[in-house]
Every structure is written in C-alpha cells, then in structure tokens.
C-alpha cells in the first residue's frame, strides 16, 4: 500500500472515531458518578464531579486530536 493512502486511512479512522469517544466519555463519567453516589450515599455531589471529569475527558480527546492533526 502506498504511503499517502495509509495516511488518509489513518486520519479517517482517527477522526471518525472522535465523536463517539467524546460522547462515551461523558456518559462514562456520569454513570461512574451515579454508581459511586449509590455506593457512598452522597447523592448529587459525586454525580456532578463524575460528569465534569467525563466532559473534561471527552474534550481532552478533541484537544489531542487537534494537536495530532497538525502533525499528520
């Protein structure tokens, strides 16, 4: 396979998977917070912390993709 084709496929796969990983990170943080809330009986506190962490994780994916996009 030629080198340009490989790089196009690589970018395509990477950026196509970006949206899904952002959404899943947010939900993962949210449900982690909810689960820990049930476990420690601290109702809304850990849910918000988990949600914030999840959003941060999702957006760190975007930032990293932007940094990587300049290198390709």
């Amino acid at each position: 396979m030629k080198k340009e084709t490989g790089s196009v496929f690589r970018e395509l796969g990477y950026f196509a998977s970006l949206g899904m990983s952002v959404a899943l990170s947010i939900f993962l943080g949210l449900f982690l917070g909810l689960w820990l809330d049930k476990k420690f009986d601290t109702d809304p506190v850990l849910m918000f912390i988990g949600l914030a962490l999840g959003i941060a994780a999702g957006f760190s994916n975007i930032v990293r993709a932007g940094k990587k996009g300049r290198k390709f």
Binding site: S25, L28, L53
Partner: peptide, 8 residues
C-alpha cells in the same frame, strides 16, 4: 480523566 478516556 485519562482513565475515563481509556475506558471509553
């Protein structure tokens, strides 16, 4: 954050 990202 990284652990959540890697689980995602």
């Amino acid at each position: 954050i990284e652990i959540i990202g890697h689980t995602a």
